[in-house]
Write a protein that binds this DNA or RNA. Structure first.
Length: 555
RNA sequence: GUGCCUGUAGCUCAGCUGGAUAGAGUGUCAGCCUCCGGAGCUGAAGGUCUCGGGUUCGAAUCCCGACAGGCACGCCA
């Protein structure tokens, strides 16, 4: 119905432009917005104010002429000019019927839009080094990445989730040495393989060392250290990656592809990427190293791709990886990174341009830090002291649902305060429970219906004239917003919008529930309200589904 | 020093591709089920949108400049 209104307005604008022999400004589009204020109708537009200048008319005068061109009856019930030149539209009550019918008939598909038109998009996220368990920051990245991917899927994109395993750098050797050292410790021969100074000290390393002892006994200790370190690196990397995979799975995040950085080298994909840069004259050799001309893109110095000693940098892998992604025919690439990597974004964008791709086919979501609190007080963490709080600990303490919700509650580019005690609270302070409670309440009504032997009416029986209370209309309005909220959050890569919307939807429901009854009222009213509950339940479930949060029937 | 992010109610934050009286939650205060789940609802109080300029019919929103907090500036990853 909103589309129809848009078309009516577009036609009206064109008519007026023609009659007054005015040109429409380039790229002009009719945009409708939800008025913030109740009493300002269902939709509003500011086009009269936008076009007043180019048309050489007064905003209100133009608004009046626009209204004259919009027929009343089929779509619009009322149109009025307000304030400096807004036009407020009230739709015919049909929109209520339409919304409920849509919701109930589309069911689990309700809220889907076709913004993506089936285009392929890759969301690469978490991508933590396989050197230790995931911590808080990774958790936020995981939630944001996963939920963004879900939203894009809902918005009609063909989405792939990918984890990039950084298993090629120096840190892997350090990991191997650390494991080796712990292995010797377990055998009581610690002196033979000292722990590297900045090695990995976490407890998990001891567990891993024990597993080596269990499987190989002293066998690995009877060879020269240099001979086994590569084995330790590779095996430990695998074990840690598996640990990470399990944690993420429990967190509700599954990846379509686990992409190994090392495989870029093993499969010879690095060389061609370098050659392509050289061919395009974006890379050159100097002082025995290979350089990328990042200064062409505003960087203050060129960056090294291959070091003097012949060893490629991390950046090199990323160049090859980017090329590899495009080779897999993605139209859009989304990187979810911790904000501490922000300085690296221009470099990635530069390479993207150097390869001749449009700037907007790569988007980097920078996720700001997480401050962990307990009862409002910061939790002290130190890598050195081994007091890092892991994602697993948080999941275990506050549960997956609350953890996910809290991680996406805020805009990505603002730092997040995560209060463990608050997240655990099963009270109104906790927005997760507020939303889930709404769903559970409706389920409870359904149980009651069944007990009383009342059947759920067919949507065709819906009688819109029974929906009269402001809280009811408000609830329908909230339900009807899902598709546009999906579209907006997909366009902006803003998963937090969905968390906010979920809360607003629940609020509309609770408000209705407290002021009106579903059972024990006249049958026509009851039937209409049961259908309203049906649509509310579907919408709540779909929204929670997008967030990866469960929609419990009982709490 | 340079770059990026942030600064909105006591606290935690939405709103930022310019629009109407700046919104939530929480906290404070006052109320609300003999009834479908009170983990709920209704209302009140609470604001120089950090500050100063500019653009505009109109600025929390855009531009410039301060100030404050966070993060990053390797032939590390």
């Amino acid at each position: 119905m909103t589309e129809e209104l848009k078309q009516l307005l577009e036609r009206a604008v064109k008519n007026i432009a023609r009659d007054s022999k005015q040109e429409l400004p380039e790229g002009f589009m009719v945009r409708l917005e939800r008025p913030r204020q109740a009493g300002h109708g269902d939709w509003a537009t500011n086009i009269a104010m936008q076009l007043a200048k180019p048309f050489g008319m007064k905003p209100r005068e133009l608004a009046d002429r626009l209204i004259d061109q919009v027929p009343l009856g089929e779509v619009v019930e009322k149109a009025e000019v307000a304030g400096p030149g807004f036009i407020n539209f009230t739709l015919v009550s049909n929109w209520i019927t339409e919304t409920l019918k849509n919701t109930i008939s589309q069911n689990e598909k309700y809220g889907r839009v076709n913004l993506g038109r089936g285009r392929r998009v890759q969301v690469e996220f978490v991508s933590a080094n396989p050197t230790g368990p995931l911590h808080m920051g990774h958790g936020r990245g995981a939630a944001v990445g996963d939920i963004t991917a879900s939203i894009l899927d809902f918005a009609g994109w063909d989405v792939e989730r990918e984890y990039y395993i950084n298993d090629a750098g120096l840190q892997m050797e350090l990991l191997g040495k650390s494991a080796q050292s712990r292995y010797f410790d377990e055998l009581g021969r610690g002196d033979e393989a000292p722990m590297p100074e900045d090695g990995y000290h976490g407890e998990y390393m001891t567990d891993i060392a024990r597993s080596f002892v269990k499987e190989y006994g002293e066998e690995l200790a009877n060879k020269p250290l240099e001979e086994t370190v590569a084995f330790f690196s590779a095996e430990t990397g695998k074990i840690v990656t598996e640990m990470i995979r399990k944690d993420l799975e429990e967190f509700g995040v599954t990846f379509d592809v686990w992409f190994s950085e090392k495989s870029l080298y093993d499969n010879g994909q690095v060389e061609p990427a370098m050659e392509e840069l050289k061919d395009r004259d974006f890379a050159y050799e100097e002082d025995g190293a290979l350089w990328f001309r990042s200064t062409l893109f505003g960087d203050d110095k060129d960056r090294v791709l291959i070091r003097t000693n012949g060893v490629p940098t991390y950046f090199t892998s990323d160049v090859a990886y980017l090329k590899n992604k495009y080779d897999r025919n993605f139209e859009k690439l989304i990187y979810v990174w911790g904000a501490d990597h922000h300085g690296y974004v221009p470099r990635l964008k530069s390479v993207n341009k150097a390869f001749g791709h449009p700037d907007d086919s790569v988007d980097v979501l920078l996720i700001q830090m997480v401050n962990l609190l307990r009862d409002g007080k910061p939790v002290q963490m130190s890598k050195r002291a081994g007091t890092i709080i892991t994602l697993r600990e948080i999941m275990d303490e506050v549960g997956v649902d609350a953890t996910r919700f809290f991680f996406v509650m805020r805009r990505c580019d603002s730092t997040l305060d995560f209060d463990l005690e608050l997240a655990k609270k099963a009270t109104s302070e906790n927005p997760v429970f507020y939303v889930q409670y709404a769903h559970a309440r409706i389920c409870s009504i359904y149980r009651e219906l069944e007990e009383r032997g009342i059947a759920i009416p067919d949507i065709e029986e819906f009688d819109v004239s029974q929906i009269t209370d402001p809280t009811e209309i408000n609830l329908v309005k909230a339900i009807s917003r899902l598709p546009e909220e999906v579209a907006k959050s997909a366009e902006e890569f803003a998963p937090h919008r969905i968390a906010y919307y979920a809360t607003e939807l629940a609020e509309a429901f609770h408000s209705f529930y407290n002021s009106q009854r579903i059972l024990g009222v006249d049958e026509p009213v009851m039937k209409a309200r049961i259908l309203l509950m049906q649509a509310t339940k579907i919408t709540l479930k779909n929204v929670l589904g997008l967030l990866g949060v469960s929609a419990p029937e009982k709490m």
